[in-house]
Design a binder for these strands. Sequence first.
RNA 1: GCUCCCUUCGUCUAGCGGUCCAGGACGUCGCCCUCUCAAGGCGAAAACACGAGUUCGAUUCUCGUAGGGAGCGCCA
Length: 468
Amino acid sequence: MTFRTRFAPSPTGYLHIGGARTALYCWLEARHRGGRFILRVEDTDRERSTAPAVQAILDGMSWLGLDPDEGPFFQTQRMDRYREVSRELLAAGKAYWAYESKEELEAMRAAALTRGEKPRYSGAYRDRNEPYREDPNRVLRFKNPREGKVVFDDKVKGRIEWDNAELDDLVLIRSDGFPTYNFAVVVDDIDMAITEVIRGDDHVNNTPRQINIYRALNVEPPGFAHLPMILGPDGQKLSKRHGAVSVMQYREDGYLPHALLNYLARLGWSHGDQEIFSIPEMIELFDIADVNQSAARFDMAKLGWLNQQYLKNDNPLEIARELAWHLHRLGIDPSAGGPCPVDVVIALRERVQTLKEMAQRARIWYAPISEWDEKAVAKHLRADGAADVLSAAHEKFVALKDWSPHAIHAAIEHLANEQGIGMGKIAQPLRVAITGTQVSPSIEQTIYLAGRDEALRRIDAAVKKAAM
RNA sequence: GCUCCCUUCGUCUAGCGGUCCAGGACGUCGCCCUCUCAAGGCGAAAACACGAGUUCGAUUCUCGUAGGGAGCGCCA
């Protein structure tokens, strides 16, 4: 039997970071075992499911490169199948019609709670054999075993045992004819031949109920692996308060998919001391059994570090493509003039952690200086001799045969020797002249990227400004 | 309230009874390098929640306690 995992989000919003990790682990485990990865959209909640959310999830997965081998399948297109299976259960005496109103159920729970018990369904209709009839309160309930226990070996949590006495008769088919989650998953996972259910550990409590449904259907349950939660940096549940929760927000914030994947993989899983994993390495080394059992906090600082690792080591050509996307967001069209984005990547990738920062810093080469750092002007432009140094540099640059970082560097060094001053005395005034600030990449890169004409113009302007 | 799950440096983690006065990474701090900012190099501070057992020996096994989380829906 081939190994099959599935990711089964409900389309009530974007793909969030927790869902992305679940998808990643399902995907990795399937790849690792040479199996198949299936995408199933659980849209039986007609109130909250939306088409844009479906699209958002698809977009998120595709940006991350987590492409399904099969699907997306939609539960709302499988209604006949759920009805069919529910009829089987009913015919086998493993399900029954119940007719309590919501108010009655509410009262039942409240009463149980005051007795110090779990708020559960009493099973009043369990043995009544009530026939089907049109009734707004009609639901089909599952006859959960009342004795014995359910035991399963969770791939990450270990052995989990549950007394059937703790479980009640859950609803299989709602009064509107739609299946409930617990029923639909089981039917789907059986039909889609899922061998390994990997999901968030908020589902641990549902697992015994689901296993009972498998048994009622005479099907051997799949393996289960329940992933611990991802917490916000403050240790609280991840929420919009924490900023980036949607996966696509990370794209906008300038992260590379590979960096996010690597971070997510390491959040809850590890392989010795290794921190950096290529995708093929992840596939080779990942094992769901090595996943940790406790919740982990999301740490932006480490994500940033990882992102920079990839910024520094990935092919600059590819990064330049991503950079162009961010430049456009800032209203810059790199094809309309200015330096080649590949050169910008090389100049900035050791100085920023995100592409967003990189694009912002790159502005100085694509647009005129918009704002002068007055402290920098006072300190470096109006310093003694700064204007002369700038003029001398201007001359050198005019005379340069070859406009390259190397040639520019040589010219500046030469000038330093001539004038008997340190590099700092030349580099800083030039930096302020070119960028308006005292922070930028190496001075030869900064000047080179401006282009000869623009560099000379800015130096001229700075000489004038120094005299003001 | 009940049931289930979790607990190693600030954070992510290694550790699967002795190799641990606990290793790595991010972050923090210091030094070096240096035209700024970074990157890089070197170094430092920093943890087994607590209490009982089991054992010759517990970070590692068992049970409690405390703390945290999840679930108890005609939501998924």
